[in-house]
Simulated assay, not measured.
Amino acid sequence: MQIDFHHGVTYVCARLAGFEHQEADIVAHSAQYVDDSTQAGLIRFDNGAMFDRISSAHKMLDYRNFKELANCKVWIPFHFLPGNGGLPAGQDPPGTFIEKLICRPNSPVAQTMVRECIEQRYRSYGLHRLGITLHVFADTWAHQGFAGVSHEINSARDLVDGNDRPDQSLMNRLKGFFIGGALPLGHGTVLSNPDKPYLRWGYTNGRGEKISRDNPKDYLAAANELCKAMQRYRLGNADADVPGLPAADKDKIAMLFETTLGEGDCRHRQWIDHIAQGSFSFGPAQVSYIANGYGSWKHKALGIVGEGDGQRPALGHRIESRLPYSPQFLDSNWKLFHDALRAHHFYVIHDLLPQYGICVA
């Protein structure tokens, strides 16, 4: 999924779940920032204080960059949550280990992840972790059938459109993406098809199975489940019987998934316009998202902008700059987001996945 869903739709679902603007803004911003937090390493302040952070994405999410993208520390916990074959803890799907790693929509693994987030809602970074969790949760619909490792299971051929006709345009674009014996990672072999809410399409997977995808249907199911998760979060009860999206708003969202076209940023602007115009039952609201630069969470927390801010941009390298320290840094959204990012990563890798017999680090 792209920024139109992770930010725009998440904000809408948060408001419809009962969150007021300020809290919904934090949740939605955090959900999208998972795709934009590409730098890791140590920050040194001028008073001797330090802060270490991890990344949750790689530069450009470039499907061609196999060396960087083949990193389960990023792709598995943040984008391609293993589905364990859709089975509960203690059960294994037939086949080899890769069957456990394939992403499945709303899997027991994903539901357990949401439960933990709700149970940890009292943390200072609770809302930020909710946004991160919802990003991963939503992606289980978009990324279903693919795995966050380089494996032939991710191979796709014979791509077709919604009328089962060959998608020659996409197949031509793919010719320039994959070379040699490199194995595909995630949904690289179908590019951004899973990330477009309006698309109906299909392909033949690495097992020779014909797969039909209905993105509008999947995205609507994801939005409804996100709303339910946030309703349960607000109640502090992961088992609460909640309604999900109100009927009229659900119909509006379904219509927008079908009719909001263009690339991700273009679709995002259209969602922001609908929110501003009061297209949903919570009324009009002014929402914006700044990934980096002036006005971004990072700028407000550290007073730095852009890539040339004294950092070493390579993944995992430490930051040597001695930045001015402010006590307000401890309560900044940027710092709390990174606290939540690390908490989510540790839980998924070391607690959640082992419950399902999955060891990836």
Rank of each mutant, 00 (worst) to 15 (best):
T96W: 00
G176K: 10
D351E: 15
I275E: 00
H128M: 06
A285C: 10
D218L: 15
R207W: 07
N172I: 06
K217Y: 07
T96N: 11
P327C: 06
W141Q: 09
I54G: 05
F51L: 05
T259A: 07
A343Y: 07
V109G: 12
F280I: 05
D46R: 00
N84C: 05
V242S: 11
D46G: 02
T259P: 03
I290H: 01
V136R: 13
H299L: 01
N237R: 14
Y356P: 04
Q22I: 00
S150L: 09
N215P: 06
V27K: 01
R200N: 15
L302N: 00
G90W: 00
P93H: 01
R115P: 05
T140V: 00
A276Y: 00
R234A: 15
D46C: 02
D25I: 02
L159M: 12
Y63C: 13
G236K: 10
L261Y: 11
S56T: 10
F137H: 10
Y233N: 05
L353P: 01
E258S: 09
G295I: 08
R123Y: 09
G316R: 11
N163F: 08
L226C: 14
L341R: 06
G236L: 02
R115Q: 12
D331A: 10
D161N: 15
I358W: 03
A343W: 02
S321N: 11
Q270A: 10
